[in-house]
């Protein structure tokens, strides 16, 4: 493929090199798990500020700190949203199958280019190590929706790297092209040079959020199982969605009207779709390998209390645990 692989000295450097490689015109990605993801937060912020497309794969594992080394967890959900400092948008996709890992990885690169924004592929230890059948399209290029970053077409002297189009995204040149350009981690204006005026800062921060909001349709990724007549709705992502899916199937077989909502984009969360399917539900359950992060977001979206099914001992959530919750409701853990 003619690519370059670099193992940097630490994950701070990996994320920094990723930003550099993308500015030099390469589609770039890195992969890590919890401790490395913590180190990447600094330069994830850099990628967001510079509006540099790149993909970060974070396979969630137990924490805090070293935790239960490499045991499964889903406790980086909020870090993926809020890990780096300052107001910023976040885009994170969460595979629940090995096929998702392939499909969402392709989608992640396309979304990164579309939005000029780092995209996080938020997997977990179970899905990352799973072996399942994967169907790879015969011609992967044709299968792709967007494809490639938007490059400028204006004369070089007119190029302003942060002059956004109506969707809030500016075309991005690359170092070595005919465009000479400047990007800065400091608050900057359309030229890319620092601008500390309050009105400019407000405009930039708002645009960063709005460019993601304006592409809500491309980002609303989810799956619903047994949504029809679901009076008990389980919300789960990643490996927990698999346990929940098995539990819902068993519950339905036992006559319990259960359903499942699986967000494939966790940031921004597909709130509209969740509200719709939850409207008829008598009870909403959230199943996750965390003390309670997804539950917070679901409660925020639905404005109602949910029943949490949480596991945070380094073991995978089982269908039995979800089923138990469906049968008699689980107690809240906090």
């Amino acid at each position: 493929m003619g690519g370059v692989y670099l193992q940097m000295e630490d994950e701070i450097a990996s994320m920094a090199a990723l930003v550099g490689a993308s500015l030099a015109g390469a589609r770039s990605f890195t992969a890590t798990s919890g401790p490395g993801f913590s180190l990447m937060q600094e330069n994830l912020g850099l990628a967001i500020a510079l509006e540099v497309p790149c993909v970060v794969v974070n396979i969630q594992r137990s924490g805090p700190s070293t935790g239960l080394a490499t045991r499964p967890a889903q406790a980086d959900l909020m870090q993926a949203r809020w890990g780096t400092h300052g107001d910023h948008p976040a885009v994170a996709l969460a595979p629940a199958t090995v096929q998702d890992c392939y499909d969402l990885a392709v989608r992640a690169f396309d979304l990164a280019d579309l939005l000029r924004q780092p995209v996080i592929l938020l997997g977990d230890e179970v899905i990352a190590h799973a072996r399942e059948r994967v169907v790879v399209p015969e011609s992967p290029e044709e299968d792709r929706g967007a494809g490639g970053r938007r490059e400028p077409a204006c004369p070089p002297e007119e190029y302003r790297p942060f002059a956004a189009g109506p969707d809030g995204v500016a075309p991005l040149a690359w170092f070595g092209s005919r465009y000479v350009f400047h990007v800065s981690s400091s608050m900057h204006d359309e030229t890319g040079f620092p601008n500390a005026r309050p009105d400019n800062a407000a405009r930039v921060i708002a645009r960063l959020h709005e460019k993601v909001a304006r592409h809500a349709a491309e980002l609303e990724l989810y799956r619903i199982y047994q949504g029809e007549g679901a009076r008990y709705l389980v919300v789960a992502y990643g490996a927990s969605a698999r346990a929940a899916q098995a539990a819902v199937a068993e519950a339905r077989a036992a006559g319990i009207p259960a359903g499942l909502f699986v967000p494939l984009a966790v940031w921004p969360f597909p709130a509209g779709a969740l509200r719709q399917v939850a409207a008829e539900a008598e009870r909403v359950l959230v199943a996750e390998m965390s003390y309670g992060q997804l539950a917070l977001e679901v409660e925020r979206i639905l404005h109602r209390e949910v029943v949490g099914i949480h596991r945070y001992d380094g073991e995978m959530l089982t269908p039995e645990e979800v089923l138990k919750g469906l049968e008699r409701g689980a107690s809240r853990c906090w």
Binding site: V4, L6, A16, G20, A21, S22, A24, S28, W174
Partner: peptide
């Protein structure tokens, strides 16, 4: 580290 990414890519 940023420079490394730039030079390695191009």
């Amino acid at each position: 580290a940023i420079a490394t990414g730039i030079k390695a890519a191009n």
